[in-house]
């Protein structure tokens, strides 16, 4: 390819998307190869994930043995919510967990250098290089939960609700990713923070309960600032037909805003990285 052709290829946004799709496909392929190479490891982690999912259901069944409903959420709705929670968390982990763990390593060991010289969007590459395919069984188990919950409720959501649910789950994943990425990006300033990749877990844990149980300041915080409500409450309500439309729109906008903020922070961080080190 001549330089002019290359330049044209780079300036043409469609081919840029194709290019990134090809990179992503190559990453998926490589991850698949890796998971297959370590079959025992894959099975063990998959088993642990599914067990954890079952335990969260058992815990909830135990609680609802004592109360019938919390803030308008009865056991069957809670099954949908828990399934959604597990779905969002396991998909987020599947797509990003290993990348976030690796990112702080790249920065500390200087391996970011060899990534930054590649002709690819660096945030895209560091965020998508690895997949944790062993999360897939948990995600599937979560879908079964949601189905069981719906059946017990006697609900059959229409296409609009299913679409809304998918969009809300996608927004939740984007929001979580952006927050996670921004947390880890802080390493560009501080140098080293042990276990920063796990800093977001407590926030995610709050989403095990519906956002409606919180009152006052906490509710504002978990609904509008940290996207805790977006993780489980908003998608579940969308599926159950309980969601106010503005809340769905807000969730989508928040996801986009957080994503934009994460790219901005990465750019600023890289500028600092390339001016502060030697």
């Amino acid at each position: 390819m001549s330089r002019e052709q290359r330049k044209a290829a780079i300036q043409n946004p469609k081919s840029k998307i194709q290019n990134h799709a090809a990179v992503y496909l190559a990453c998926v392929r490589t991850c698949l190869a890796r998971e297959l190479a370590f079959r025992g490891h894959f099975l063990l982690l998959a088993l642990a994930g599914v067990t954890w999912t079952l335990l969260s259901l058992a815990l909830m069944a135990f609680l609802f043995g004592r109360v019938t409903a919390v803030a308008g959420w009865n056991l069957d709705r809670m099954i949908v919510l828990t399934g959604t929670y597990v779905l969002v968390v396991s998909l987020t982990n599947l797509l990003f967990a290993r990348n976030m763990q690796h990112l702080s390593e790249y920065i500390n060991k200087g391996e970011l250098d060899l990534i930054l010289v590649k002709p690819v969007n660096s945030q895209f590459f560091v965020s998508t290089r690895f997949l944790s395919l062993h999360e897939l069984p948990s995600a599937l188990a979560a879908l079964v939960y949601v189905g069981v919950g719906l059946q017990r409720l006697g609900l059959q959501p229409g296409p609009l609700q299913v679409l809304g649910y998918a969009a809300a789950v996608a927004s939740a994943i984007v929001s979580l990713y952006a927050l996670w990425f921004m947390t880890v990006t802080l390493v560009l300033w501080t140098g080293r923070i042990e276990n920063i990749a796990y800093a977001l877990e407590p926030v995610m844990d709050v989403a095990r309960v519906p956002a409606d149980v919180f009152r006052g300041l906490l509710r504002v915080l978990f609904t509008f600032v940290l996207p805790v409500a977006m993780i489980s409450t908003v998608p579940s309500k969308a599926l159950l037909g309980l969601l106010e439309p503005w809340m769905g729109i807000y969730a989508a906008l928040l996801a986009l805003a957080l994503l934009w903020a994460s790219t901005h922070l990465w750019r600023v961080g890289l500028r600092r990285y390339s001016s502060a080190s030697s």
Partner: peptide, 16 residues
């Protein structure tokens, strides 16, 4: 964790 050929295939995609 993987043989070099896998990294080469990734670079093939990266450099188009």
């Amino acid at each position: 964790d993987l043989p070099p050929i896998e990294s080469y295939l990734l670079n093939q995609a990266l450099y188009d």
